[in-house]
Amino acid sequence: MRLCMFQEILAFILTTSGWVLVSSTLPTDYWKVSTIDGTVITTATFWSNLWKMCVTDSTGVSNCKDFPSMLALDGYIQACRGLMIAAVCLGFFGSIFALVGMKCTKIGGSDQNKARIACLAGVSFILSGLCSLSACSLYAHRITSEFFDPMFVAQKYELGAALFIGWAGSVLCILGGCMFCFSITGSFSNVSHVTSFPKGQGVSGHSRPAPQYSSSSKNQTFDKSEYV
């Protein structure tokens, strides 16, 4: 019981930390940064995230421009936005389910109900980690494909810090969610099973006495048969 409780507490710490990292990734500026490979003098640094594109000059002054239209964006940016928002929402609901389903809390009902809620929290965190992992990987794939494409002549970028933070948070959410799912195995081990008794025995295990017939009933039967 204590081991399962400690496992749930550790899973809650991992998943909450991962959810905080994933949530902080969404507004982080540096999703991609302009590369300095092959350049001798760098006068400006270009960087962008899911919401805006900025440039920072040599004096440290940044000028940013928000993406003017959501429908005019590239498909991968729209997909990353949707996946990251879904990851944050799933992690929020997973945190609520985890607080209700943990054995160290006094809400949620019986142990079996709390185990089901904890399993639901684990599934929510796993889905949250997968959404964040997919978004960061999709964005990184676009950056690396443009960087290693010799025919791409526009500004090339490198992976920003936000992608690494998102990957770390995704791994923590997935690990913690799996621990939540594995922690419910002990809650269903004490389920009552129907016990079958041998024929002629009751619930207490004693044999049922055979029906007794009185001698008077036998004599009455024989007396009736004599007059037939």
Score class of each variant (00 low, 15 high):
residue 3 L to W: 03
residue 32 K to D: 06
residue 151 M to N: 14
residue 195 T to M: 10
residue 43 T to E: 11
residue 116 R to I: 04
residue 152 F to C: 03
residue 139 Y to M: 04
residue 223 D to K: 12
residue 152 F to R: 08
residue 172 L to N: 05
residue 156 K to W: 13
residue 14 L to F: 13
residue 109 G to P: 05
residue 113 N to M: 13
residue 178 C to P: 00
residue 160 G to W: 04
residue 62 S to A: 08
residue 170 S to H: 05
residue 221 T to Y: 15
residue 161 A to M: 03
residue 157 Y to C: 11
residue 145 S to Q: 09
residue 55 V to P: 08
residue 221 T to F: 07
residue 146 E to Q: 11
residue 193 H to I: 00
residue 67 F to K: 00
residue 103 K to R: 06
residue 73 L to A: 12
residue 204 S to H: 15
residue 32 K to H: 10
residue 120 L to T: 13
residue 183 S to D: 01
residue 124 S to K: 09
residue 68 P to E: 13
residue 141 H to N: 14
residue 37 D to S: 08
residue 203 V to K: 11
residue 141 H to Y: 14
residue 210 A to F: 03
residue 218 K to E: 01
residue 169 G to E: 12
residue 175 L to G: 13
residue 59 T to W: 12
residue 186 G to N: 14
residue 60 G to R: 11
residue 224 K to H: 01
residue 220 Q to T: 03
residue 13 I to M: 08
residue 70 M to W: 15
residue 219 N to L: 09
residue 144 T to V: 08
residue 156 K to F: 11
residue 79 A to T: 13
residue 126 I to P: 02
residue 192 S to F: 11
residue 134 S to K: 08
residue 57 D to K: 06
residue 197 F to H: 15
residue 139 Y to K: 03
residue 188 F to I: 01
residue 116 R to G: 09
residue 89 C to H: 05
residue 191 V to R: 14
residue 45 T to I: 10
residue 158 E to W: 00
residue 37 D to M: 03
residue 113 N to C: 04
residue 7 Q to L: 13
residue 47 W to F: 15
residue 146 E to I: 11
residue 201 Q to R: 04
residue 1 M to E: 06
residue 206 H to T: 03
residue 22 V to S: 08
residue 176 G to I: 07
residue 105 T to M: 15
residue 28 T to H: 07
residue 166 G to R: 00
residue 91 G to D: 01
residue 33 V to T: 08
residue 190 N to W: 03
residue 46 F to W: 12
residue 102 M to W: 06
residue 123 V to S: 15
residue 168 A to F: 14
residue 51 W to V: 12
residue 48 S to R: 10
residue 172 L to S: 07
residue 96 I to H: 01
residue 210 A to Y: 01
residue 218 K to P: 02
residue 191 V to C: 11
residue 178 C to K: 08
residue 16 T to P: 12
residue 41 I to A: 05
residue 85 I to N: 01
residue 127 L to A: 03
residue 31 W to P: 02
residue 225 S to Y: 09
residue 16 T to C: 14
residue 139 Y to F: 15
residue 130 L to Y: 04
residue 34 S to C: 06
residue 198 P to V: 04
residue 23 S to C: 10
residue 6 F to G: 01
residue 185 T to S: 02
residue 84 M to H: 12
residue 171 V to Q: 02
residue 131 C to T: 06
residue 45 T to A: 06
residue 45 T to C: 03
residue 221 T to V: 14
residue 141 H to P: 00
residue 22 V to E: 11
residue 196 S to N: 13
residue 28 T to C: 01
residue 172 L to I: 10
residue 185 T to D: 09
residue 141 H to G: 06
residue 158 E to A: 09
residue 53 M to V: 14
residue 227 Y to V: 15
residue 90 L to R: 07
residue 126 I to C: 09
residue 211 P to L: 07
residue 30 Y to E: 08
residue 152 F to M: 05
residue 59 T to Y: 05
residue 193 H to A: 05
residue 59 T to N: 05
residue 92 F to T: 14
residue 39 T to F: 00
residue 12 F to A: 10
residue 47 W to K: 10
residue 174 I to L: 00
residue 44 A to E: 13
